[in-house]
Amino acid sequence: MGFLDLPGLGKAHYHEYGSGSKPMLAFHGYGMTGKQFHVLEKSVLTKYHVYGFDHFFHGESKLSGWAENKITAGMPKTMVKAYVEEWFKKHGRQRFSVMGYSIGANIALLLVEEYADLIDDIILMAPDGLSTYKGFHFLLHQPIGRFFFRQVTKSKWLAPSLLNNLKKTGFIDASLHQIAYNEIDTPQKRQDVYYTLNLIRLLKPDAVKIAGLINQHHINCTLIFGKDDNLFPKTAAEPFINMLDDADVHEVPLGHWLVVKQLDEYLVNLPA
């Protein structure tokens, strides 16, 4: 474990694990920490030494000097480079790989935009960032949606009601509903949802540019989707997939809750 002092942001906490020798910077999904990929012990962790970062408002990472109006304005994309530049200061400038799950994929993809010539592999699981998710776009970029999102996070009953309706209409499944409900059952958790999603609202990768860089630099690209994932399904990512020369794409019998032991077993049993 350790911390990186990210200029203009704060302290980013990271977890180190994995028996492999190849360094990998990893970014988790909402409500988790940088330890999330620990379950991939037979597959990913035998190949890589993972540096799993806690998102801000998660784990031990702490923003410094950011008032609410600055948080809701969003973190500029240029600040993502600080993760790698500060990591280089500790470990030396070298080749590395990246991994991201769900909202964490945005940061992994942005690092490809900036460091494609130094990246060996990218692994994305149920990734955000490859297409525009209309629900998030409405809540984070449309004035009415932003107002509604703020009101939901202040209310004890609006957030549960919204989740129940999303489940009824099939936007989320029962397992994702339960996970999300556990993240909004206190005022602090609701505030953290609001702050987290607003902080990263500007971190939108350029999918066309990234696909070109992956092809140009022959980055090994693995994309994993859940067959029952209604949040970030494979269908939404197909335009990106079709731009890649040689992607390794998998659709596994899981929902959005993808980083689990079953995924590890699936990956380790793939034909060589």
Rank of each mutant, 00 (worst) to 15 (best):
L6V: 02
K11P: 03
A12M: 06
E16P: 08
G18P: 07
G20Q: 02
G20F: 00
G20I: 07
S21K: 14
F27G: 00
T33Q: 11
K35I: 12
E60P: 08
K62T: 06
L63I: 06
G74H: 00
M75Q: 04
A82Y: 12
E86F: 05
F88A: 07
H91C: 07
F96W: 00
F96D: 09
S102E: 01
I107R: 09
E114W: 02
I123H: 12
D128E: 10
H141L: 08
Q142A: 11
P160F: 00
L162Y: 10
L162M: 14
L163F: 08
D173H: 01
A174Q: 13
A180N: 14
E183A: 07
E183T: 14
D185S: 10
T186D: 02
R190Y: 05
D192P: 03
L197F: 15
L199C: 08
L199I: 06
K204S: 10
D206T: 10
I210A: 00
A211E: 09
H218N: 14
T222N: 01
F225T: 07
G226S: 08
F232S: 06
K234P: 05
A236Y: 09
F240Q: 03
I241N: 05
D245T: 03
L254N: 11
G255D: 10
V259Y: 07
K261E: 15
V268E: 14
N269T: 10
N269Q: 09
